[in-house]
């Protein structure tokens, strides 16, 4: 009887912790994808960092902490704030690139951080080169990752026509990303899955401009 109790207690406790990780991650990833408030995104980033500090074996908490800081820059307008948010994202990325070098998603996130550094035209050349280099590596690791083509399309879209960019040239890439998004099956629902919605919006925008 005693043994049974102990076994039950252990099972229960471990279930409690694992369930806690999974549930906490899942609900906060949902929150993260909907949030449009810088404050909330910072809170979420901090939460993911706390999870990362506890669940040292998992890389997704750090990934989402970094993603939250990256996402928060979409709601900022001045270059300095964007830079300081990206500095925080980069600090986490440096760790991730060390431990998860073989993970395509980490390189996509790095590519996005580089692209977002382009807050003024003088940075264009340097950071778009770095971003494309990261996307190349992501593609090498997993060519079926739709976010690669979504980010590459964004890079092309935001590059001025004189430098070889523009909406016309981005269409093909958005379409490729769309096809991959539609066929992708997620075997782990904590795994990165963002981008589909925006990819659709951008594709429509490009087609409308044509």
């Amino acid at each position: 009887m005693k043994t049974l109790l102990v076994v039950l207690a252990v099972l229960f406790a471990s279930h409690c912790i694992a369930g806690n990780y999974y549930e906490t991650m899942k609900s906060n990833i949902e929150k993260l994808e909907k949030s449009t408030s810088i404050d909330e995104l910072n809170q979420l980033a901090a939460l993911f960092l706390r999870i990362a500090n506890t669940e040292k074996e998992e890389w997704l908490p750090n990934y989402y902490a970094c993603y939250a800081y990256t996402r928060s820059t979409h709601f900022m307008s001045d270059g300095d704030s964007i830079d300081s948010a990206l500095d925080q994202a980069q600090t986490i990325l440096d760790k991730l690139l060390n431990t998860q070098e073989k993970e395509s998603e980490v390189h996509v996130l790095q590519a996005m951080v580089y692209s977002l550094r382009i807050t003024n035209p003088t940075r264009g050349y340097k950071y778009s080169s770095l971003s494309n280099k990261s996307l190349d590596r992501a593609e090498q690791l997993n060519g079926n990752n739709p976010r690669i083509y979504y980010c590459r399309a964004n890079n092309v879209y935001h590059t001025p026509k004189v430098f070889g960019g523009g909406s016309d040239k981005a269409i093909g890439l958005y379409e490729k990303a769309k096809a991959l998004f539609e066929n992708s099956s997620v075997d782990n629902d904590l795994f990165p899955s963002w981008g589909n919605y925006h990819n659709g919006l951008m594709l429509d925008k490009c087609l409308a401009q044509k």
């Binding site: 806690n20 906490t24 910072n42 809170q43 901090a46 939460l47 960092l49 706390r50 999870i51 500090n53 506890t54």
Partner: peptide, 15 residues
């Protein structure tokens, strides 16, 4: 602003 405060070995905390 934005300092991360957490309780060791837990998810609890704030900024």
């Amino acid at each position: 602003i934005g300092v991360n405060i957490s309780i060791k070995d837990s998810y609890e905390g704030t900024i």
